[in-house]
Simulated scan of single mutants.
Amino acid sequence: MRKRKRILFVINPISGGKKKTAFNKQVLEVLDLEKFDPTFKITDHPNHAYELGKSAILEGYDAVVAVGGDGTINELGSAILGTDMPLGIVPEGSGNGLALYLGIPLNESAAIRRINRFDTVEVDTGEINGRNFFNIAGLGFDASVSDHFATETIRGPIGYLRSAINVLSNFKPSIYRLVIDGKEYRKEAFMISVANSPQYGNNAYIAPQASINDGILDVCIVKRFPLYLLPKMVFHLFNKSADQSEYVEIIPGKKIEIVRDGKGPVHVDGEPVEMGEKLEIAIRHKSLKIIC
């Protein structure tokens, strides 16, 4: 009898504001149990998914699956980065940017059926001041929103929108010095996003031309714009046309340095992290396998 592949499902019970009490039962109904032997573990503290991923390597699992949002994917992906172990995704976050880009269904059963195929793709990963990111990292307005959202009692898109409105009321653009592949720029920006994939999540595309396996990061500089144009800017995001706005400049690069006035929040795949005034960013080409 052929040996079944051992898969560890790492479940974030609070991601996306969704209950996951019936998830294990659903996996046992949908997953091909002749091919796969599933184990389930639930995260209960920050960085727990990372710890479980590291343990999965030592325990000889054949794959790990992030059942959560981009933050859970980040922790679990960081744990297995540089190994041959593939990462599966069952999208359960507020935005699910990476999953949407990869075409992984948001429906739980459909996402589990993708794992049955066990097809993998090699993707690029980014690094910012020693922290890994797989989708998008950023500073400025979106980082401040992520920082606020971390304390929001309402999860999901509604909570994120509420955080964005609260931050927008008194947010000011900053001056940044950037060095991208050796070329220096000085920009006043509302925010700067460094994109490995095109979208934040919920089909909001900040870097429509970005590719997750081209060995390049897209540095998206959103300039100061009149507040009355906010609806148009939002339209560009959801119409995959942000790169056509006069207030958005996108510069591709592999090695990036950003210097700002002082320390502050940076979002790393949507999770706020306090970092210093100097940010050093690089890309690792095709460094992670994802089941899709």
Rank of each mutant, 00 (worst) to 15 (best):
I290D: 06
T120D: 06
I192M: 08
V10C: 13
G140C: 02
A204M: 11
V219A: 08
F171R: 02
G95Q: 05
E249H: 12
R114Q: 14
N116W: 08
I42L: 15
G68E: 05
F36G: 07
Y61E: 04
G68W: 03
A137T: 15
R284Q: 14
L230H: 02
N170S: 15
K263W: 00
F149L: 11
K54W: 00
Q209R: 14
L227V: 11
G77N: 08
P226Q: 11
E277I: 07
L100W: 00
I14E: 09
V219N: 05
E277H: 14
N213A: 15
I216L: 11
T153D: 05
V273A: 10
C220P: 00
H48T: 13
M1T: 10
I112K: 01
I112T: 03
E108Y: 13
F23K: 02
E127F: 09
D214N: 15
I165P: 00
G53T: 08
I281H: 08
S94H: 04
G140E: 01
A66P: 06
M191N: 02
K254F: 10
G264C: 05
E280K: 12
F36K: 06
V27N: 06
N47V: 14
F133A: 09
V67I: 12
S109M: 10
K18D: 04
S245V: 04
C220E: 01
D218H: 12
E249G: 08
Y228F: 15
R6E: 09
E152I: 03
S15N: 08
I57K: 00
I251D: 06
I192D: 02
H285L: 07
K183I: 15
N239V: 07
R2G: 09
V179S: 09
T153M: 04
A99K: 04
V219W: 02
N170Y: 06
I258D: 01
R186N: 11
P86A: 02
K19F: 07
T151K: 11
K172E: 11
I258K: 01
L237H: 02
G264Y: 01
I283D: 01
P91E: 05
E108P: 08
F225I: 03
K25P: 00
E271L: 07
S241V: 12
E274P: 00
L227A: 13
I7C: 11
I128D: 01
K18V: 08
P105M: 08
E34D: 12
C292M: 13
V145N: 00
Y176Q: 04
V90K: 03
I158K: 12
E277D: 15
N24F: 13
K255Q: 15
R177F: 03
K54L: 13
V145R: 01
